[in-house]
Design a protein around this nucleic acid. Structure first.
Lengths: 223, 223
DNA sequence: ACTACGGTTGAATCCTGAA
DNA sequence: GTTCAGGATTCAACCGTAG
């Protein structure tokens, strides 16, 4: 392994992943940029625009690298939206089997067209598995409720709860979890809480600093 | 109009729809064959295998015809599953805007891989709109809960409640509603209950007879 | 335990005005 | 004409607190 475990790398993930050994990752859990040029206009808080979110050109190279580093029977969880789910699913299916599409049901609905559309209340999570690896715990449904957390840190912050849930369903202690788009850091933080190893990339320096602060805070409180 | 309203035609819908006038349909509400060769093993009831369900060759011709007969600003609701949502969405998008993907959340979970997968609890409904037509009533979320109904009529029976909900959101009295894959008849029955007109096709004679019986029953009870 | 009520919030979309 | 950036806007769901 030419890469350090339990580190958040401030670099482009497609480059950085090249230093990860073949078939060494036990779980992929990530929230990719949706390719929507999203910038939150939420009230007074102005978040940094998501980098490289104006197109999905990175997707084929990214997926190829993911397939190289993630174990054959590992589970993959990839967040995406209804706007371009067909693009993500089609690309991922070139390498891995999309076994299910999970629904993260949020506690509240979003903005958008007020009169001509239904209010958005969920995010998709593409769940990939070749079928050999079992899920830990009982048989849960493919609709998962989890409350949104504060979005002071990141425009599209994911709840640590939800990440920990997926981590426990699909990995054991000391496994290696990869998140190429760490964002607010929910995956590395969840991994640390649950005593798994993580490899994380985040291209935005500000977010990297936030993640490292949050991780340090856990260290102080856990031990 | 060369076609009779409020009739269930026992024929292939791609042929039958040719008799519908251009841009004459106010709402499309249908549960297409998912292309999975589905045959329910539910309890003792053996359902008829869904015809033409082993492939999706019909889809391009079907969608072209749908686009011809449905009004430009009309809403389209097309049920589909996660297995091939990308195929349906991509094909539909050649003609219409998929504005949202609705989740029909069922009261119970389905079968499937008991150990290596999450239990299926929903169906997708592709919601298409060019954005000009408003939805009736309040602003509802894109997750819609509706109980499954008895499964003795049809393998993939949809609740009449749910169809009536969509009918009321997206049409007014005397509108024309099209269902090219009528199945158990939830759409024509919902349409009749809500005093809309329907055009329905169902290739399987047994199902046609069932639908007509159910429709007759409404006539008796409504008037 | 239950209801009532106030406070808070949203991976968006539309519209307007400037370039 | 066209594109683009930024500002205003919804109401249903949920939570916490109080009665």
């Amino acid at each position: 392994m030419q890469i350090e475990l339990n580190t958040v790398y401030n670099e482009d993930c497609v480059d950085g992943m090249k230093r990860i050994e073949d078939k060494s990752v036990d779980l992929l859990l990530t929230d990719v940029p949706y390719g929507m040029e999203f910038q939150s206009n939420y009230r007074n808080v102005k978040h940094i625009k998501i980098q490289n979110d104006n197109n999905l050109d990175w997707l084929p190279r990214w997926m190829k690298e993911i397939d190289r580093v993630v174990k054959e029977d590992a589970h993959l969880y990839i967040f995406c939206s209804h706007h371009n789910i067909e693009i993500f699913k089609s690309e991922i299916q070139k390498y891995r089997k999309v076994k299910n599409i999970l629904i993260w049901e949020k506690n509240n609905t979003g903005m958008g067209d007020l009169y001509g559309d239904y209010a958005p209340k969920y995010e998709f999570v593409l769940f990939c598995s070749n079928g050999k690896k079992k899920l830990n715990g009982g048989r849960d449904s493919n609709i998962i409720k989890a409350n949104r957390t504060q979005n002071d840190l990141h425009a599209t912050e994911k709840p640590v709860d939800l990440m920990e849930y997926f981590i426990e369903k699909s990995s054991v202690e000391d496994d290696i979890i990869l998140d190429p788009f760490a964002g607010s850091g929910a995956t590395p933080i969840g991994a640390k809480n649950k005593r798994r190893n993580y490899i994380a990339f985040e291209i935005e320096e500000t977010h990297c600093n936030t993640i490292n602060k949050r991780l340090k805070h856990i260290q102080a409180s856990l031990f």
